[in-house]
Design a protein around this nucleic acid. Structure first.
Length: 301
DNA sequence: CCGCGGGCCTGAGAGC
DNA sequence: TGCTCTCAGGCCCGCG
């Protein structure tokens, strides 16, 4: 499911339920997700107050009063749903579209408010890990991550710098979480389309030749880099506003669908007419680094 | 160090 | 209807 907008949607849904509340009891209903749970996973959660719920790239981070941080990743098919105390008394009132799929309810947090937060993940590519906050900097899962695409340090100059010495396509570079952290296949396709840039273009062309020659720090941003950053900002902000994109698995924590998929301009639109005014091209699909790329070869250069 | 391809899982949808 | 095949929003790992 989840790229940055979907994870941010989930964070916003869980925040009012978890922040300031205590995890009365945590349940891990199997011994592993993508990785085995830590031996003391449940013990380190039971009785803990959640002091904050944040996001880094596609990770959710729950701060605990103990000084631990609960790191959560949704993988491809993970979702959270919140079951409120009142809903429990009237089952079916806020029926989750996948709630028949109880077989994949792997983790449950019973909160002091009476609400239950349930993690469901059929494919089990998701995972949870508890880390001491003071060890967060060295955490291997987070250490290599590039800048937040909606953060202040991510701009054309920064993007050009990190692409200047790459020997790969723009598409692959944007999917690389070391370059920018939080984009996935959908939003990379959409951002490249909106910036009119080809997914096949070399990533290094976002930096001027002169900039590249300046050495390791090298790469003055081109206008292409500026256009791309603007497109990334726009598509992510619009998608967050729409509650993310629901193709197969993504649900808001209420069970509602996101609706940004209706605003896709190229993703999953193979064969349709290009929406750019006066272009007249047709959206194409091909496989690039093992993933589907959707684009308009006529107006993305 | 970098870039690529395989693999991890299950479910949905297409085609026969 | 039911089988088989392909594909899916992510990311770790091992290879060259």
């Amino acid at each position: 499911m989840p790229e940055l907008p979907e994870v941010e949607t989930v964070r916003r849904g869980l925040q009012p339920v978890m922040e300031g509340a205590r995890i009365v009891k945590a349940e891990a209903r199997r011994k592993d997700l993508r990785f085995p749970f830590q031996k003391d996973f449940v013990a380190r959660l039971d009785g803990q107050t959640v002091t904050g719920l944040g996001r880094r790239a596609k990770y959710l981070l729950a701060d605990l009063a103990s000084g631990d941080v609960l790191l959560m990743h949704l993988g491809m098919s993970g979702s959270f749903r919140v079951i409120n105390h009142e809903d429990k008394k009237t089952p079916g009132k806020f029926h989750h579209p996948r709630s028949e799929d109880r077989a994949h309810d792997h983790v449950v947090f019973h909160m002091s408010s009476g609400a239950a937060v349930v993690f469901n993940d059929p494919r089990r590519f998701g995972y949870m890990k508890i880390i001491a906050r003071k060890a967060l900097e060295e955490e291997p899962l987070l250490r290599g991550l590039g800048p937040e695409p909606l953060g202040s340090e991510f701009d054309a100059a920064m993007l050009a710098r990190s692409c200047a010495n790459r020997k790969t396509s723009l598409k692959a570079a944007l999917l690389d979480q070391r370059v920018v952290a939080g984009l996935g296949n959908i939003y990379v396709c959409e951002a490249l389309y909106r910036a009119h840039l080809s997914p096949l273009r070399l990533a290094a062309t976002l930096a001027t030749k002169a900039g590249q020659r300046k050495g390791v720090a090298g790469g003055e941003p081109t206008d292409h880099a500026r256009r791309l950053v603007t497109a990334i900002h726009a598509v992510l902000n619009q998608a967050i506003k729409a509650g993310g994109s629901s193709l197969r698995d993504h649900r808001q924590t209420t069970g509602e669908l996101g609706y940004f998929q209706h605003s896709f301009q190229v993703y999953d639109r193979e064969g349709e007419k290009c929406q750019t005014a006066g272009c007249g091209g047709i959206v194409k699909r091909f496989t690039q680094n093992g993933r589907s790329t959707f684009w308009c070869p006529k107006c993305q250069k």
